[in-house]
Design a protein around this nucleic acid. Structure first.
Lengths: 146, 146
DNA sequence: GTGTATGCAAAGCCTTTGCAGCATG
DNA sequence: CATGCTGCAAAGGCTTTGCATACAC
């Protein structure tokens, strides 16, 4: 298959894309597999991986391969930033980052040609904030992740 | 072993830390294992993993677990940003990011409590820039990674 | 009908872990 | 000399891949 445009409009590919776009949770391949199986019980995990990879190559979806250990996928191919919860590991969106936050003086650094950047914010999601509040755990720093 | 301070100063731990600090390449565990084996042929990969994990927990080194697929390690525990080459996958340092680049209005977003962020710059390293120049490949966008 | 995509299962990686023996403090 | 650490090897978890079959075009 390699790169290139998707060749055929298979039912599997449709359902995978459809369910991914419906989800707001930036699921892992395995999570999406579970959801897709409800509509298509005989689909295989390998097919999910193959299609996610292909869709990402064609910029129809986005592969968040630098956030966390398992790859996560986003139905929105537009470049936006993400925030990961240090407590539960879930991933949220952050759209309103100013386009010029990256100062021009970093466009060139140590001989590298900078062509872009991705920010991973680290924080605590609303759900886990509630849990912490219930248990009176401070929010300052979870101690996890670097 | 869990977290906690390192308990004993083993030869293995010394050599692992020493070689990691010598390297500027942010090696993966396997790469560091190769280097360490030259000084200590009978060391096992498991020991390298265990020590890297322990040293990272004690903030003596830094685990770059969000950059790329394999975890990479940095002998410098100070928080600084990294840049990954889209061509060869190598990782470099970026120290001079302004501390206040993160605008205050992002400190709270959608109910999340933001406690930090890590930036992964994407670019082309000096070596690969030369290769591209030799082959007359433009630097605009490699097409890889998102 | 042709060739891509699928389902299934096995294999590939990276990483973690169990265990018995070793060596540090 | 007690026990944390090591080496070894096996297992775990995620992802990729080989192969025969099915299906989109």
């Amino acid at each position: 298959m390699a790169a290139g445009e998707p060749q055929r409009n298979t039912k599997q590919r449709q359902v995978i894309l459809e369910e991914l776009c419906k989800l707001k949770s930036h699921p892992t391949a395995a999570e999406l597999y579970q959801v897709v199986r409800e509509k298509m019980p005989r689909i295989s995990l390998g097919t999910v991986y193959r299609n996610l990879e292909l869709l990402a190559k064609n910029r129809i979806i986005q592969k968040l391969d630098t956030i966390g250990v398992e790859a996560r996928f986003d139905g929105n191919p537009a470049r936006h930033n993400h925030i990961r919860c240090t407590d539960c590991g879930c991933v949220g969106d952050l759209h309103d980052i100013p386009g010029d936050f990256l100062d021009q003086r970093f466009k060139q650094a140590n001989g590298w040609k900078i062509i872009g950047c991705r920010i991973e914010f680290i924080g605590i999601c609303p759900g886990c904030r509630n849990i912490r509040q219930d248990k009176s755990i401070p929010e300052a720093d979870s101690g996890k992740s670097q």
